[in-house]
C-alpha cells in the first residue's frame, strides 16, 4: 500500500515510525536528486539538507496531513529545509568546510560520460525556476499541478516556467548539437 493510500484511508496520525522510514527509504533516490537541485548542485550540502529533512519527518517536526501525495509533501519539506539551510548561512560556511574536507581523499570520484556532463551544463543555463519545474516534471514524473504544490506557486506560473523552460532547453540543445 502506498503512503498516499495510507494517508487517504487512515489519516496521518496512524503513520508509524517504521511506515515513515520505509517510505523515506523507498523515495530516497528521488529525494536526494531533489535535494541536490534545491542546493543548486552542491552534493555535500544536499546530503546535509536531506539528513535534516529526514530528522524533521521522523521527529514529527514536519507532519504529513494527507493533503497531497507523500512524495509531493516530502519534496516540500526538503525544499523548505534547503531554504532554511541557506538562510542560516550554513551554505556559505560549509563551502569553506567542503574545501577543507576535499583535502582528504575520501570523496569517491566518478568518471562521468562527457555527454552527461554537457547535459548538466546545459540544464544549469536555464533559470532556477525553469530548472526546478522541469526537474519535477521530467525527472521526478510529477504533474505540473504537483510541481506547483511543491514550489508553492500557482499552477499557471508553473506552466509558464514549464513551457519556457522546454523551449529554452531545446534551443540550448540545438546549440550544443554538432
Amino acid at each position: 500500500m502506498t503512503m498516499r493510500a495510507t494517508a487517504e484511508g487512515r489519516g496521518s496520525a496512524s503513520l508509524t515510525d517504521p511506515d515513515l522510514r520505509a517510505e523515506l527509504a523507498r523515495l530516497h533516490f528521488e529525494s536526494h536528486a531533489w535535494a541536490v537541485r534545491c542546493c543548486r548542485g552542491h552534493a555535500i550540502e544536499a546530503e546535509d539538507v536531506l539528513h535534516r529533512a529526514y530528522v524533521k519527518v521522523l521527529d514529527g517536526k514536519a507532519r504529513f496531513l494527507g493533503r497531497s501525495s507523500f512524495k509531493t509533501w516530502l519534496f516540500g519539506v526538503i525544499r523548505q529545509t534547503a531554504r532554511e539551510h541557506v538562510r542560516q548561512g550554513w551554505l556559505r560556511l560549509t563551502r569553506l568546510e567542503r574545501w577543507w574536507r576535499e583535502r582528504e581523499p575520501n570523496e569517491p570520484s566518478y568518471g562521468e560520460d562527457a555527454r552527461i556532463v554537457r547535459l548538466r551544463l546545459v540544464l544549469q543555463r536555464l533559470s532556477r525556476r525553469q530548472q526546478e519545474v522541469l526537474h519535477l516534471v521530467f525527472y521526478q514524473n510529477l504533474t505540473i499541478q504537483e510541481a506547483a504544490d511543491v514550489l508553492g506557486m500557482p499552477v499557471g506560473t508553473a506552466r509558464t516556467h514549464y513551457e519556457r523552460g522546454k523551449s529554452r532547453l531545446r534551443d540550448l540543445l540545438g546549440e550544443e548539437a554538432p
Binding site: F29, H32, E47, D113, I116, L119, L134, L169
Partner: peptide, 14 residues
C-alpha cells in the same frame, strides 16, 4: 535528456 541524467545520478547517490 532527463532520463540519461537520472541514470547517471543513480550511480552517484549516497
Amino acid at each position: 535528456v532527463f532520463h540519461d541524467v537520472r541514470e547517471a545520478d543513480r550511480r552517484r547517490a549516497p
